[in-house]
Design a protein around this nucleic acid. Sequence first.
DNA 1: TTAATATCAGATTTATATGTCTGTTATGAA
DNA 2: TTCATAACAGACATATAAATCTGATATTAA
Lengths: 163, 163
Amino acid sequence: MTVIFSKKCELALQAVLYLSVFNDETYFTATGISKRLKIPKDFLAKILQSLAVHSIVISKKGKSGGFTLGKPLNEIRLIDIVIAMDGLEIFHKCVLGFKGCTVEKPCPVHEKWGKLRDLTYKMLSEETLLEIRDKSIEKIKSIHYINDESLALTQSIVDRRLN
Amino acid sequence: MTVIFSKKCELALQAVLYLSVFNDETYFTATGISKRLKIPKDFLAKILQSLAVHSIVISKKGKSGGFTLGKPLNEIRLIDIVIAMDGLEIFHKCVLGFKGCTVEKPCPVHEKWGKLRDLTYKMLSEETLLEIRDKSIEKIKSIHYINDESLALTQSIVDRRLN
DNA sequence: TTAATATCAGATTTATATGTCTGTTATGAA
DNA sequence: TTCATAACAGACATATAAATCTGATATTAA
């Protein structure tokens, strides 16, 4: 079980954070990203496609193709990825699952969860990829590549940029 | 999709809140509870069985059997139900899904989510069913029975207690 | 121009969560 | 004692999410 986001959303967030580390027009392949993040390649490919539809990333077909961020770092927030993948449901639904949970007919934790939910939204929306970039770099650096001859060159380029 | 808890957990919380409203040794049937809460009977039956295993409710077989709370109201907290149904995973796992998310290798929202996660835990554990009982009563009252001849008597008894 | 490469589109499979069904067992009321 | 009732146990079915596969299309380096 995931914490609050779907697996799809979690991996989308990871992939976008990965791209934010480089912040240039280089196109990174689904395969390369999946190896670095150690996540299923085909699943990630679908997710990146979906992110492309939402203009969060830009895709390029063919040789030397791949994915790159669709906007400047300061124009992408984590909440944008969450909304694209999971929608806004989790910010509207009752945490206890009651159907008609409103201010008039509140559940026993309506108010308390309301505050926590708003703080969660704030956490995801008050900063852009630019402000959290240093933290993203450190995190991505801490994830070691799966060793792979064919990616050796790419890896060295990536590592050089990361260090 | 649910907010943070599984459907099983949501329905368990609702059922326990329902029982907390009456706070006596009356045994309520799975069928009766499901009609009041408008949730699938057989699924709820399974959930109540599971709650019985965890001593959160007590079950009684046969005629005039059913389920009642296993402890006094002031000894049951919402977190007890959550742990019984979903475990503690959501309070330990990285909200972005990163595998090794620790203080040493934190994800970009590690600290912020840590605070929100702790506040969520606090919300579920600092009060017992006794303290939230008034709110529970109001909420259960706001849910109308599915009309059913065979439950008319039971319903009137319940409503009398609720009013 | 050709070959290699990478996304794209959609179908398919697998895993997990959710929900249902059936026969059995225990209980209490008539 | 008999009968109706309700939980119980485990199998079964369905829905959704997660993951994989295949052929088509676009791109570019050689």
